[in-house]
Amino acid sequence: MSLDTWIAIFVSTVVAATPLIYAALGELVTEKAGVLNLGVEGMMLVGAVVGFIVGVNSGSLVLGYLAAMLAGVLMSLVFGVLTITLQANQVATGLALTLFGAGLSAFVGRSYAGQPIDGADALHIPLLSDLPVVGALLFQFNALVYGSIALFFAVQWFLSRSHAGLRLRAIGEAPSVSHAIGHPVQKTRYRAVMFGGACSGIAGAYLSTALTPMWVEGMSSGRGWIALALVVFATWKPLRVLLGAYLFGGVTVLQLYAQGFGLTVPSEFLSMLPYAATIVVLVIICRDPKTILLNQPASLGKGFHPDA
């Protein structure tokens, strides 16, 4: 294979991994606060359709992304009110949110299905983008790809270095103790859930405006679930989430190339590979139960009521 092919594989890998990075980092922050939101897939679909519709009608993708984030936040607020304020079961509510999001997005996007648009353009950075090889490798992505890297650094810094991040982790660890010290458990959890919603929303908009610039019903095709699995198997560490997402992207792209070469393996088997490979690798990485116990937020999935 030529150098150009390798560059193309690398670039497609990064492009395919980006929505997972957004969705998984958002869910990671939510879970670090002790809330398990299984509605990522649903929030992504709503983000995808809203981002697409606003982008098409306004002619501005930036507006589309903002609308997608807002839509994700609204979806997550439904979840937040039910689970944080009304103490509904988080698992059941999250599953319902996914079903709701899938139905809602299909309904809203009926007249837009299959309509193509101009996708997000690659940023042109003077000098850097024109560099030989390196320019093609690293400096010809669209803005959301760079945004995902920035988000990784921001989340990493927030969780490990900032005081607010420390309080968020403490709340995920032991909400009753945090409450006794005087930290606002419910407020922090709302914020974390809303952050997760915004991230899922933009991950969805990325699918419908950058990865494949069109709206198709159910187009997230399980990426929300992979994002959820990534968070667990990455043992709640942002760097592992990032690497896991790139692994998923890489295998996705490689299997497409393999299909192109006309291997005799059924294409369904190859399409399954990225999901299987990501999970197998991450399971092997986190097979030490101590790593999980030390990193898993101890109150994950458990409601908390300040008066109890």
Binding site: R169, A170, E173, A174, A180, N295, A298
Partner: peptide, 11 residues
């Protein structure tokens, strides 16, 4: 000073 479990174990 609380009687039990008022520290965060993983911190």
């Amino acid at each position: 000073v609380f009687q039990h479990f008022s520290l965060f174990e993983t911190l």
